[in-house]
Design a protein around this nucleic acid. Structure first.
Lengths: 191, 191, 191, 191
DNA sequence: TATGAATGAGGATTCATTCAT
DNA sequence: AATGAATGAATCCTCATTCAT
């Protein structure tokens, strides 16, 4: 009895399981068997919906990026002042949902696999391009034209650095602290 | 008397091979066999000198950190002005030797394994503590007391973010560009 | 629906192969690869059904013990006289099926691994407890109360000794001979 | 500076280490490296004095058997009565030195390797032949001619059974208990 | 006599993937 | 749509052994 419309449900189930598994057991132990068991499904299902493991991982990164993009868009809509628009971008990254340990762990783990999985690169490149574009756009009213690029680079590096740090077991970085750091930096970096 | 004094030579050989292998083939394909073959040695030798693959990876991270530390110290010695001392730290990270693709790739790959290899954490924690201490020390004459911590966080996040980015295939970050970004940021961040 | 109900079949297949392999090639050469090949299956299947090589060995000991227990029970049922009940236990151990070289070799080999595989101990402890209880129960009507324990020890030691000897290449012990030895001993040991 | 006359010393050292290692770490973990380290020597030394690992194991079994034989001979000399001579043999096996856990563990472990190491068989066969001959000789004045063989078998099986049991982690057999069992059995088995 | 460096085969295990049902 | 049986390659590690010194 073929149930119809299971695809989105199952995909979501598997992506959730992937994130959970990477967070709780580490990438190295996040095998297809382990992920599918965690999703309450069979290992074969991964091939069914994602062709292979790389497909699942790519979909997982897509989902994470999409979540973050939507958060940014949502906040952008409510932002009227130039500075608020910039903060919409930065803030989004450190919202509890997206700065949560499982999200950040997964994001970082997938970043580590990028070299080996071209599709992962593709997905990430698209997200990054959009982020950079958003950043530059938000910065334009706030800094002189010739500094837009360099400040965008600085801020984007800081975002990545803080995310990376928070994904590491060696340091404790709270979202609160991250925002404080940005506050201080922005107050100086902008003209 | 046996062939003696091989230990340091062999260890260096294997660490070199590890870095090369991770850079050229990726972490996932950097098996003990592949690394040892690249070193012109047998797979068993890894256990002989490092107990474990984990031992080899830990030693590799140690070496990388030590190289960087020495670079920082070397530059520190020649720095007389407060600002020069801060630049000594930042600059060191982006010297061709330490910002070279193989170094950065390896550093990033090992960062990704940290969760699973406690010894890697230990090594990194020590390095980080020293770096933070150096940064704070260098910042003290340059910013107000209450901003030392926050600026240290910002700069350290930027370093990590730029390194992480440069280890990714999605972006091209030159050492030159990194320094430009720091220049602009520092000019504003300091009092 | 997948190919179903393979579990008991495959497990039996692998246990059979284990016994055969230990008998014909020795424990030292009874690797997972060799055992599974002998079963006409792939090495991975062992993990699938038994988790471990240890799991397979434990299941093998269980099977051997179960076979023997059932033989004893079968013979017990037909035994009406007290002496017959004692013989049921002894005889069972030296029936062609259970005293067969492959069985005894495997039993002995697994006994040698007991120190290293806790689960093997557990299985054996349970079997031994039952055997001792049976022995004592059978001896009660045949010897004075204060000798039950000591005669049980003597007989159980003789069983093990004869099995152990027969598993060794240094001596030839036929089931016939074993029974003769027991006959003589019993005729004296009982009151 | 080649020291002379080291051979017997070194050999004893290695055999001691073998027994200790098998007892404390188990046969499976008693590698040449581990044994030689325990002896405070290098792994290469084993080949020097025993050709290979099998040679060391064979020498170990020889030593164990020799110790036991000497114990029997010593006790035989002091035994004047026929029954005392029989007890000399049995008792020797359960003297603290020879029934000690490390001795029994090693003896049992080597028994398990016999199938795979022909030299081990050879050594054991010789010992067993002598033991059987001693047993028969001691029994001749104590039981009727036609029962000598069968009682020898029974006693020898009991010795092995008790040793085997005591080498197993599943049961606790004290030397005291062993002797009690023999006492009861002998009192009935002899004419 | 003795070392310890070095080897490479062989072990158990894990894993992504395929496929019949 | 979904299963789970089954595969076989790949990984890390351990080990007996060899050898130059």
């Amino acid at each position: 009895m073929p149930k119809v419309g299971m695809a989105p449900l199952r995909k979501a189930q598997l992506i959730d399981a992937t994130i959970l598994c990477i967070h709780e057991e580490g990438v190295a132990r996040s095998s297809v068997q382990r992920i599918s068991k965690r999703a309450g499904l069979s290992p074969g299902i991964v091939a069914h919906y994602f062709d292979d493991k790389d497909g699942l991982l790519t979909a997982t990164l897509s989902r994470l990026n999409k979540n973050l993009s939507e958060e940014i868009i949502r906040r952008m809509k409510r932002a009227n002042e130039p500075l608020d628009r910039l903060w919409a971008i930065l803030d989004a990254h450190f919202q509890p949902v997206h700065f949560a340990p499982d999200t950040v762990d997964t994001w970082f783990a997938l970043w580590g696999k990028m070299r080996e999985i071209p599709n992962l690169q593709r997905v990430q490149r698209i997200y990054e391009a959009r982020l950079r574009s958003n950043l530059r756009h938000a910065l334009r009213p706030l800094v002189s034209a010739e500094r837009v690029e360099v400040v965008a680079d600085a801020l984007s590096a800081m975002i990545d650095g803080l995310w990376a740090k928070s994904a590491q077991p060696t340091t404790e970085i709270s979202a609160e602290r991250a925002k404080t750091v940005f506050s201080d930096t922005l107050s100086r970096l902008l003209d």
